[in-house]
Amino acid sequence: MTVHDPIRADAAVKRVAIADDAAMLRAAAELSREFAVANPRIYWPDLLASALIGYAALAGAILASNVALALVCGLVAMLALYRAASFIHELTHIRKDALPGFRLGWNLLVGIPLMIPSFMYEEVHTQHHARTRYGTANDPEYLPLALMKPWSLPLFILIASLAPVGLILRYGVLAPLSIFVPALRRKVVAEFSALSINPAYRRRPPEGAFRRRWLWQEAGASLFALALIGSVFAFGWKPLLVYMAVHSAMTVINQLRTLVAHLWENEGDAMTVTAQYLDSVNVPPPSPLAAIWAPVGLRYHALHHLLPSVPYHALGKAHARLIAALGEESPYHRGNYAGMWPLVGKIARSTMVRR
């Protein structure tokens, strides 16, 4: 397997000018039909085990009197809950009838306790996959980070570390107040109800059945946020601070993963599917740690842009099939990278180029 070298000083390619590769798209379409079925016998045990381990370790971190043990438990809790939380990405792509009860179960087990209910990603992430939206100003999940100032990258990570504070404010303060203040409600819906990285993105009010799902999920997260605030009076500061530390670390590692999910080199024009693929990143085996920092299939992010309907457990097989079927000249091989830190370095160097 060929792994693209991110350190190589290639001349920047204007992604929008890249034509679609018919052979790659045809091979991907055939695999999409073959691997499109989500297997509940994989989804449910994975989610339940991740949540159980995560909450047990979180309890251990809160109850431990030994600092070293508390840190170990906190690390385990962060990684397990990060994996459990990553299933929100799957929820946006699986068919409604594919995994009965999974969306409800995920929200009760993970979305509400972490204050990231699925409505914050549903009908948002799919816009990132829209053919004419990807990489444009209308993409909620895209910023041309490689073309921005060097300080933008540490700021990108720093903002993520403050996520639990922002979520407690959003659900424990703003959501209840917005019930009585219509103008605040409009602002909360438009600006504080999406897991997006584009600060210019504004969300439309929900409608129909989705609105009903939104409201009960938001109510659940608000009650949980209020319970967190109230826990200080019942149990002191330690449980809340440990929860926030684990949540913050989880969000930071996800933000680092987001940072290397794309090359972020598009300047706002609509792109071909092949150009979108080449602006995205796979970190396939043998990278030893990618399954930890990019769990639930997220290590195959570029492939996911070719096969958005393929469940996470089939992406490895689809990747191996494409590697074997497509020759070295195929652009598919140029979407594969060796690891996180070379990619961080590549993007950081790009921000330092005078434009």
Rank of each mutant, 00 (worst) to 15 (best):
residue 285 P to W: 07
residue 21 D to K: 11
residue 54 G to K: 06
residue 276 Q to L: 10
residue 50 S to I: 07
residue 312 Y to E: 11
residue 61 A to N: 01
residue 116 I to K: 05
residue 92 T to C: 12
residue 125 H to S: 07
residue 189 V to Y: 01
residue 156 F to H: 14
residue 117 P to V: 11
residue 260 V to N: 02
residue 153 L to W: 07
residue 170 R to E: 04
residue 318 A to Q: 01
residue 253 I to V: 15
residue 141 E to D: 14
residue 111 G to Y: 02
residue 159 I to E: 06
residue 51 A to L: 04
residue 334 R to Y: 09
residue 59 A to M: 13
residue 203 R to I: 01
residue 297 G to W: 01
residue 88 I to W: 05
residue 133 R to D: 12
residue 182 P to L: 07
residue 69 L to W: 13
residue 85 A to Q: 14
residue 284 P to Q: 06
residue 17 A to D: 14
residue 17 A to S: 12
residue 154 P to K: 00
residue 145 L to C: 00
residue 53 I to R: 05
residue 316 G to M: 00
residue 75 L to P: 07
residue 18 I to T: 05
residue 341 W to N: 04
residue 151 W to L: 12
residue 345 G to M: 10
residue 70 A to D: 05
residue 133 R to I: 15
residue 97 D to K: 11
residue 117 P to K: 10
residue 15 R to Q: 07
residue 115 M to V: 06
residue 194 A to D: 05
residue 108 L to V: 13
residue 67 V to F: 15
residue 80 A to Q: 01
residue 308 P to E: 03
residue 112 I to F: 10
residue 215 L to G: 08
residue 193 S to D: 09
residue 296 V to A: 03
residue 147 L to M: 14
residue 234 A to G: 05
residue 237 W to I: 10
residue 81 L to I: 06
residue 178 S to H: 00
residue 244 M to D: 01
residue 107 N to D: 15
residue 102 F to S: 08
residue 250 M to W: 08
residue 28 A to P: 11
residue 284 P to G: 03
residue 80 A to C: 03
residue 82 Y to L: 15
residue 4 H to E: 11
residue 270 A to E: 06
residue 126 T to P: 13
residue 118 S to M: 00
residue 170 R to M: 07
residue 217 Q to E: 11
residue 72 V to R: 14
residue 57 A to W: 05
residue 177 L to Y: 08
residue 219 A to H: 15
residue 98 A to R: 11
residue 45 P to E: 04
residue 92 T to S: 14
residue 254 N to D: 10
residue 57 A to F: 08
residue 170 R to H: 05
residue 315 L to R: 02
residue 30 E to P: 09
residue 349 R to Y: 09
residue 290 A to K: 09
residue 249 A to F: 08
residue 309 S to D: 11
residue 142 Y to L: 00
residue 190 A to T: 08
residue 202 R to H: 07
residue 139 D to Q: 06
